[in-house]
Design a protein around this nucleic acid. Structure first.
Length: 425
RNA sequence: GGAGAGAUGGCCGAGUGGUCGAAGGCGCAUGAUUGGAAUUCAUGUAUACGGUAACCCCGUAUCGAGGGUUCGAAUCCCUCUCUCUCCGCCA
């Protein structure tokens, strides 16, 4: 949600900023709605005031033992007038809310122009993609040949876009998660949280998945309106919903490992092979809750924490700043980490680190008490994958493959594999 | 799953139809006392929106959420959510 004051006072600036995303915000139409909201609201408040004054008078007269009938007659028509105007106001409000709830966040000035993925700007790269003497195979070939990746079984159990892992690969996957959690908690100062994988619609509204992106979610069929989480960002960030945080508690840095469930309704036909794009995958998520003035420093820090994961794993990657057209709706600025995938001969997204500024905080009423003003003020929220475990597994399998189809275990993961250094059939 | 009790401000906690945004306490802030601190005393201390240039003032809303009754609802009625206690079940 955007600042309603800004929306009212400078709708043209909002429209100009959102236009960078390719989002058309009709400032004039909004202003007209806003104007009628204001008129109606003033009228309703006047009527209410009239009624309140009259009611107090009735109370006083009754206490004094006077005849209140004339007073009752005097306010007789007020109720109907109030109801009519109030109903009109509710209609206008609802339309306004619809518009405003669907607006994406304003972009930070440093976000590069561009309309899609192709226009993202590389910030830096780390590591050298290997150039093996043998023909590289993709993770599907390798995993299936090892007998440890099984998409047929997953299709039987559920359907398309799920996977079954066995033995060494299953353990490698778990080792990745353990390694990442330990790294972030022991060396990067995060506190680990365990959270529900099922959330209510308020939480999804808080982080911005609803009302606009419900199609990407798996909704549960039970008596409650519950959804499977598409990312740990939802439950973890919503920890601070409706909270006022003491200044000395900030920054809050949370790390959580959760599965993520995405229906990916819009991407059929993309990455249909293998584990790249699944309905269910594991992720280690980093969330920062910070003072507004520190949020851009926090974005660099958080991104660095995700990078460290890939460096320790010895996986070549690059960092790109998402361009205006590619930044997600809730974010003001986003860096993606892209890891080298040998079989595709290119980098693929493995982490996305975003500063949402006050966009989510405003929806969630997540505030901190600013000691300088003594007032509750909105916090800034950030989130980033640190990193996606499923894609990290793909990257390890493909980057650590050997000519015989076995997979070397990265050094940092061997302690989590009982010392195992090669996964073979 | 069965039975019962609850949900009030940053926190605790009064308030069962009429100047209640809400007593009292805690916490916090400022001032006084003190060499400094503790103690004590005084004063102040919600949020959002609107009228406004204005964080002065005025108005409106907010006592778990939504609806209803009424001239008037924290207080009465209905629905829902959550919490607690006891029983049952269970990893």
């Amino acid at each position: 949600m955007l600042d309603s004051k800004l929306l009212r006072n400078d709708p043209e600036a909002v429209a100009a900023n959102l236009a960078r995303r390719g989002f058309a915000f009709d400032a004039a139409a909004h202003a007209a709605l806003e104007e009628s909201r204001k008129t109606l609201q003033v009228r309703v408040e006047e009527l209410r005031n009239e009624r309140n004054v009259a009611s107090k008078g009735i109370g006083r007269a009754k206490a004094a033992g006077e005849d209140i009938q004339p007073l009752l007659d005097a306010v007789e028509s007020l109720g109907a007038a109030l109801k009519t105007t109030d109903d009109e106001l509710a209609v206008v409000r609802a339309r306004l809310d619809d518009v405003e709830a669907g607006l994406p966040n304003l972009l930070h000035a440093s976000v590069p122009d561009g309309k899609d993925e192709a226009d993202n700007v590389e910030i830096r790269a780390w590591g050298e993609p290997a150039t093996p003497a043998f023909e590289v195979r993709d993770h599907v070939d390798l995993g299936v040949a090892l007998g440890q990746l099984d998409f047929d079984a997953a299709a039987k159990l559920t359907g398309a876009r799920f996977s079954v892992m066995r033995g060494g690969l299953a353990r490698l996957h778990r080792a990745l998660i353990q390694f990442m959690l330990d790294l972030h908690t022991e060396q990067h100062g995060y506190s680990e949280v365990y959270v529900p994988y099922i959330v209510n619609s308020d939480s999804l509204r808080g982080t911005g998945q609803l009302p606009k992106f419900g199609a990407d979610l798996f909704a549960l069929n039970g008596e409650h309106e519950y959804y499977l989480i598409p990312t740990a960002e939802v439950p973890v960030t919503n920890l601070v919903r409706d909270e006022i945080i003491d200044a000395d508690q900030l920054p809050l840095k949370y790390v959580a490992h959760t599965p993520c469930f995405r229906s990916e309704a819009g991407s059929h036909g993309k990455d249909t092979r293998g584990m790249m794009r699944q309905h269910q995958f594991e992720k280690v998520e980093l969330v920062h809750i910070v003072r507004p003035e520190t949020s851009y420093a926090a974005l660099e820090e958080l991104t660095g924490h995700a990078e460290t994961v890939l460096q320790r794993l010895g996986l070549p990657y690059r960092i790109v700043a998402l361009c205006a057209g590619d930044v997600g709706a809730g974010a003001a600025k986003t860096y993606d980490l892209e890891v080298w995938i040998p079989s595709q001969n290119r980098y693929r997204e493995i982490s996305s680190c975003s500063n949402c500024e006050a966009f989510q905080a405003r929806r969630m009423a997540a505030r901190w008490r600013n000691p300088d003003t003594g007032k509750p003020e909105l916090v800034h929220t950030l989130n980033g994958s640190g990193v996606a475990a499923g894609r990290a597994l793909i990257a390890v399998i493909e980057n650590y493959q050997q000519a015989d189809g076995s997979i070397r275990v990265p050094d940092v993961l061997q302690p989590y594999m009982n010392g195992l250094d090669v996964i073979a059939a």
